[in-house]
Amino acid sequence: MIRFDAVSKRFPDGTLAVENFSLTIPSRTTTVLVGSSGSGKTTLLRMINRMVDPTSGSIRIDDDDISTLEPVKLRRSIGYVMQNSGLLPHRTVADNIATVPLLSGVKRAQARAEALTLMDTVGLDRSLADRYPSQLSGGQQQRVGVARGLAIDPNILLMDEPFGAVDPLVRSELQQELLRIQKDLAKTIVFVTHDIDEAFLLGDQVVLLRTGGQIAQVGTPAEILANPADDFVDTFIGADRGRRALRIEEVSGRQVVIDGTGRLAGILKDGAPT
């Protein structure tokens, strides 16, 4: 469990990125922080592994106040996946995945074997182990990033818009992959995105943020959809434009689903939705 208690962060240049933020992130589930730029979501994420220290308030992981923990040690115990994968360009895929285990003194051969197993986990062909990051596609690089985040088998996995820079097709592939991995591994995942659809797809708990890290609404995707707290949430999830209000029409003898904006959302298959 991760608990934010009245956390604020003012950057040296005066920007108040987060103000009086409190939240409990339950273990072994996925919590998605979603908001536009300036909502402080990345700052909140980076406070969990002390890449950013709060100006006031406290953050606890399983009742340990993290400000008492040594940052380097803390970071090594938490997986981190970032948007541009952040892979080390001068190291091979296998070495990149094994970076943290090697830092913590795991033997080379063992670290490599574990890296290869992790490549299976994230759906990367083992033949890519000795390639360099620059020789991989964007989607493959992100998979390496995820594998690296999982390398020390952390309880907590932080993901900062990890699929933001890949094309939509690959993104949806990676999202499915993450859902599958999470079903097997059940980590405490904190996921940051600005894409509400991604948030609803991946999140057990979704936290909608306004500017300055103010919580607009917290809940399961269904709760938020069913009961948007206010106009801001309404707008953000697209309910106001009727994007979430679907109706069925008959076109050429088939039933199609159309949303409130008039956009064709899909075709209704026979029977109950699968």
Partner: peptide
């Protein structure tokens, strides 16, 4: 690339 350095730091280097 500052992002590479940032990633290295957030991994616990």
């Amino acid at each position: 690339d500052p992002r590479t350095v940032d990633a290295a730091r957030s991994m616990g280097m």
